[in-house]
Design a binder for these strands. Structure first.
Lengths: 215, 215
DNA sequence: TAGATTGTTAATCGATTAACAATC
DNA sequence: TAGATTGTTAATCGATTAACAATC
């Protein structure tokens, strides 16, 4: 089966399509044209059609796209029809926040465990899941069919923990540590570098101030 | 002063350069060539030179780049030499996590206030800052020279709160709510859509599994 | 001076937009 | 059938990479 590679630019837009279609669906809207969706999402109709056609045609000439159908198809493309067990490594504020985020469950991400290096936290619970000491991490990953690890620890420990996770069969790392992980081919990493994001915001404020002679 | 527009692709790479240069600096390394930085960061030397040259030449032929100097220059480009007061709207887990993130302070982002709709939270403290009721939000923004608002509330309230913030003179919104804000020209918005990020990870897991016949 | 490495121009590649024939 | 709108090809635009003259 000849799979043509889809660019990450396209992938990056899929969740947003998915969100808009979900909202249209909830509003009971049955069909939508690329033209109308374009107006809603502020992207070109041409791009919408190109994006969808990377995965085969979901629409119908003269009609447009069926909202419900398209919503489900994009969900499948995004792999939301699968279930993935995940753990959180690092039970600090951010780890707790993510553990308590209920919507992930709805999308097929099942919260199985939390780990922290701090023995003070051991025994505490996040959404009914007990915080475990780091010593149990590797065994737990092996024994519980864990696909995804959410890394919410300081950057100092992150590289080493990532290695352990990989060694024990993790498939993917959602990395909030402010460091680039170096993992083997086939392990998926998605970085969320919050301070990078804040710096981009800072740049844009700064640029705007300069352009408008405010500083 | 004719400012040529810098593409967001370039801006998006600056924080990463900044991070690597900071680390080199901390290691006491004095200079680095685009070639060596390329090896470290896994981007082409050509791109590095192009990126830096968007802002004028920071290097010297035959020598390379002075780490300390380049670090500071990129910091300035990112606006990290300025101070910005910020508030957090939504004192849930994520709001608490961000409020407790000390590194922001080091980069010139000063935590001034937290707001929440839940009266139960009012009076609680995040890093010495008392949670205030939403009724006080607008007044507070006006009176305290607040540049940035961090939106960590559910999407239902986000659009309305963003409007209030804009009306009271906010410059920028760091938006964690899962909705697109519609703000006037000149107001900077940086979105952090965590579930979009998780979906991209999900896609990549799924694609890998398909390519390798695991499902 | 010779060697190294930038700054910058030119070539290539990829992504977005425009246009339109196919078709519902 | 006529009108609407997709799927898809072609044209454009922008970003990345390669190459090399300038220069420290």
């Amino acid at each position: 089966m000849e799979e043509k590679e889809i660019s990450q630019a396209v992938i990056g837009r899929l969740p947003r399509y998915f969100r808009y279609l979900g909202e249209l669906k909830d509003q009971g809207i049955e069909r939508i044209s690329s033209q109308d969706l374009s107006g809603l999402m502020k992207v070109t109709a041409s791009q919408i059609r190109q994006d969808f056609n990377n995965f085969g045609g979901f629409g119908q000439q003269g009609y447009g796209y069926n909202v419900e159908y398209l919503y489900h198809e994009i969900g499948k493309i995004l792999g939301l029809n699968r279930k993935h067990n995940f753990i959180i490594v690092g039970a600090g504020n951010l780890g707790q926040a993510l553990g308590n985020y209920l919507n992930f469950e709805r999308r097929g991400f099942i919260f199985k465990g939390v780990f922290d290096i701090d023995p003070q936290l051991a025994g505490r619970e996040i959404r009914g899941v007990k915080v475990m000491p780091m010593e149990q991490l590797e065994q737990f990953v092996r024994d519980n069919d864990i696909d995804i690890a959410v890394l919410t620890i300081p950057k100092t420990g992150a590289v080493e923990v990532a290695e352990k996770l990989v060694k024990n069969g993790i498939r993917a790392i959602w990395n909030f540590a402010h460091v680039d992980l170096n993992v083997p081919e086939g392990i998926q990493v998605e970085n969320v570098h919050l301070s990078d994001s804040l710096m981009k915001l800072s740049y844009n404020i700064s640029r705007y101030m300069k352009e408008n002679g405010e500083a």
